[in-house]
Design a binder for these strands. Sequence first.
DNA 1: TCAATGTTTGCACAAATGTGCAAAAGGTGG
DNA 2: CCACCTTTTGCACATTTGTGCAAACATTGA
Lengths: 317, 317
Amino acid sequence: MNWNEERNLIMVSKMYYEEALTQNEISKQLGIYRTTITRMLQKAREEGIVRIEVVESNRVKVDLERRLKEKFGSIQEFIVVPVNAESTRSSRLKAVGNVAISLLDSILKEGDNVGLAWGETMGTMANLIERKRKIDADFVPIVGGPGKMRVEHHVNTIAYNFAKAYHSRAHYIDSAAIVQSKETRDEIMGSEYMRDVLKLWDKLTVAIIGIGAPIRSSNLVWAGFLENGEDQMLEKDKAVGDIGSRFYNIDGLETTASLQERTIAIELDRLKENRATIAVAESEEKLESIVGAINGGYISHLVIDEPTAEALIRREG
Amino acid sequence: MNWNEERNLIMVSKMYYEEALTQNEISKQLGIYRTTITRMLQKAREEGIVRIEVVESNRVKVDLERRLKEKFGSIQEFIVVPVNAESTRSSRLKAVGNVAISLLDSILKEGDNVGLAWGETMGTMANLIERKRKIDADFVPIVGGPGKMRVEHHVNTIAYNFAKAYHSRAHYIDSAAIVQSKETRDEIMGSEYMRDVLKLWDKLTVAIIGIGAPIRSSNLVWAGFLENGEDQMLEKDKAVGDIGSRFYNIDGLETTASLQERTIAIELDRLKENRATIAVAESEEKLESIVGAINGGYISHLVIDEPTAEALIRREG
DNA sequence: TCAATGTTTGCACAAATGTGCAAAAGGTGG
DNA sequence: CCACCTTTTGCACATTTGTGCAAACATTGA
């Protein structure tokens, strides 16, 4: 490219991109055929005379998201939340939670039935959610309460907070997540007071869930629920996590039959029918849990923090 | 703009500008109406998510050129040559000269008759010009030789060098620029050996000239030509420069009748008929000379160095 | 809760841009 | 100097992009 050509390319580029003249106007002003202007602009872009840059804001990590989407095709949308390295666990939870709330907000439609789980992440979100537009929707737990476990909010409170934000209806569940026996479960599931909830489970359109940490017998979180040796059983069955108290292995298959039959929670497969099932997770420790949930195909949207996203990318398979 | 919208704008912008998908393809892939994509891209540009920059290379100063063109509407094209501050006079001359050669090259057409002046700038160019494409053209001096003045090349040598570069014809002038008397001049102009040159002057299509420094009586360059008191006369007539030994004032009007009638050179007004008359100048000292030449309307293309260009912009009027 | 007001979407149409091809111009080497 | 090859130009046409308007939707305040 000689001196004179470069000059012309710069001039034409300025007229087109900075002064927003059309190629036709430029063509007339400079007495150059219009298609030549088209070609000059192409060349100017190739030569780097015109530089077009899409600014990846520090609030958004589109590139990572697209790589994740390529790796895990079953997920409709990944949302990676940037967090700064020195942030505390709680500030990360809040960051991820706020984004998940935004996402839910953009997905929610008139008439939706929204299923909610409980746990640390869901509790945080219930705290964060604020007044939203009024909408005609139903919020319902998809799993029984935490029983003796100490969590910030009962799943009914979570449903209440979400419903309140949208000036809509909350529904409550009057049962623990895991009960003593298959018989008790069957009885509760058949009871009058569960009918409303079950009906909503049937018509569920959206769900939002946290992803629990992997199960280890050293991890006593579930101790209150588990009976003689069930914690070892979970470990033996290679359970990697749970969604609404339903445990699954790395392939996403529900596991540990003795627990299954005592659990009061929506069927995992039912989540696949939803228009959207949003999962939220915020730490690398949950990597295996997350992968299991993805492999099960239960979730459509996954909101995670940046380091976890990078760990997911690095992970084999 | 909320979090989710920013995300979408970034994603769409990347698809459009980095992956070169059409708005239609993006629309289908994301399930967003196409016109919405158009509007998103507009917004992304406004918001600075997409940044488009035209790189002003350090070889080209288009902005300055456009401002000059606005200020001096009679000039078809300004060419500003960047020079670095510590460069020597000679290196600046070369820089400007090379660009002027490029410009001439892009202007020259088959069958052109090219008029040449002499002087320091023209001499430098004659030294710099190298083998070019073959062209059917005639190169001819538009002014007599420098007489006793010490210059690097006689105008005939300049014509020779230009013609040689283009594998074309040079024509020579057998006269000094300023002769003793009106009578001598008339005789020479009527002579057989000038006929060829005069015929070419008549058919001239392009000329290339240097612009001389302003005239001052302290400046003895012209001493060899000037007779009793003519130097004071020039000063009294407010001559600011010359083109091919024809002196003009700041308004571009030819001046000092006693010199005019002894000068063997093309008429200044004749230059206006050319398809292009390229003037080359390289120092701020020549500012007034340059302005006079512009005001006279004699030149269509002006090649100058950057500091001189800036001085021209700053100059009043 | 409802009316009023501002924003966004979908659409038909208008304008702008891009492309393949043939012809012309430019450049190269014997 | 000429014949060959490469690059550039002009053009018709296809594709892509932009816009005004009306309808739908969301938001606000009483």
